[in-house]
């Protein structure tokens, strides 16, 4: 049921009693390709919103440009589909002015780690209370298969047809290298239970939660995660009471690695490992300063401000 279809005037609706369902968060019909990993992420997010009972009007999804950045259109919350690479500054402005709003950021790998890389590093350092999702398909999807910074070395694309020249950028290492980073996790869209649990942990963390979501693009980069998808033995599940533990997956993902997410050195080692794909919370530290709180100032009423300006003008009076 959506707020619109309620026959009572919206104001009289007793929100205390109202329970949001997943369908309350459904926006336009998703237009991603069939089999695109983004569908599963959308579902997990809707499940999260319902689980957290976030009021749609107080929730904002901000994105850049790319297939993945279409995300806000498919939700019934407030949304800002911005420009390529620049979702984070917009989200920063929203948080600075309206800490009452819950803000999610959705970016593609080109969006976040290439054109938006500067903002990404600085947003990690600002550590605003945001859930930041990197939908990493290792390719430029929307513009039809160009190499992205996270494209595996040797992978052929339209711009590097003889294979990507460089080793792929590792977003986890970047995030863990930034001063004041407070939450870094990795999950995969083809493991929905883990995806959901990770997003929930991210949402519950106070500060910027950076979640790299391995996302399949069957059209342009189907080979990228093939092995990890087909062979659960290629995946390490990082487990810890302060991380994510999804017991229903224990039977499939038998490589369970105990990792305390408060241990930054261990997190950096795991982030750099190349033998297996590590899923779970690599790092979290809820004590890092959050920029919107650091910068909070007492609000002023209009009348107070007029009086203060008058006093300020005295300093310039002759």
């Amino acid at each position: 049921m959506t707020a619109h279809s309620v026959h009572l005037p919206v104001l009289e609706l007793n929100l205390e009693d109202y329970e949001y369902e997943m369908s309350d968060y459904e926006g336009a019909r998703a237009r991603w390709c069939p089999g695109c990993g983004d569908h599963s992420i959308l579902t997990a997010v809707q499940r999260l919103l319902a689980a957290e009972q976030l009021a749609p009007e107080n929730t904002v999804f901000v994105s850049g440009i790319g297939c993945s950045s279409r995300f806000p259109h498919y939700l019934k919350t407030y949304g800002f589909h911005g420009i390529h690479g620049r979702a984070l500054p917009i989200a920063t402005g929203i948080r600075l002015h309206r800490p009452d709003l819950t803000v999610f950021v959705v970016m593609g790998d080109g969006d976040c780690t290439s054109i938006g890389a500067g903002h990404w590093v600085h947003a990690l350092r600002y550590n605003l209370d945001l859930v930041v999702m990197l939908l990493d398909n290792g390719i430029y999807g929307l513009t039809k298969q160009q190499t992205s910074p996270t494209t595996p070395q040797g992978f052929r694309s339209n711009t590097q047809p003889r294979g990507s020249w460089l080793p792929a950028l590792n977003p986890l290492q970047v995030a863990l290298g930034v001063t004041n980073t407070s939450f870094v996790a990795q999950t995969a869209e083809w493991v929905p239970a883990h995806l959901y649990a990770t997003l929930r942990a991210a949402r519950q963390h106070r500060g910027l939660s950076f979640v790299r979501i391995l996302q399949r693009c069957p059209v342009y980069s189907s080979a990228v995660y093939l092995e990890a998808v087909q062979k659960p033995s290629n995946i390490n599940m990082l487990v810890h009471d302060d991380g994510v533990v999804v017991h229903e997956l224990d039977k499939i993902y038998t490589n369970q690695v105990a990792h305390d997410p408060h241990d930054l050195d261990a997190a950096r080692r795991i982030a750099g490992a190349t033998d297996r794909v590590n899923l779970g919370v690599l790092f979290r530290d809820g004590s890092k300063p959050r920029y919107e709180e650091t910068r909070r100032v007492p609000p002023r009423t209009q009348a107070e401000r007029v009086a203060l300006i008058d006093a300020e003008l005295d300093r310039y009076a002759i």
Partner: peptide, 9 residues
């Protein structure tokens, strides 16, 4: 944002 019934993207 914050206005019920809006929720535009």
């Amino acid at each position: 944002p914050g206005q019920p019934g809006g929720m535009y993207t």
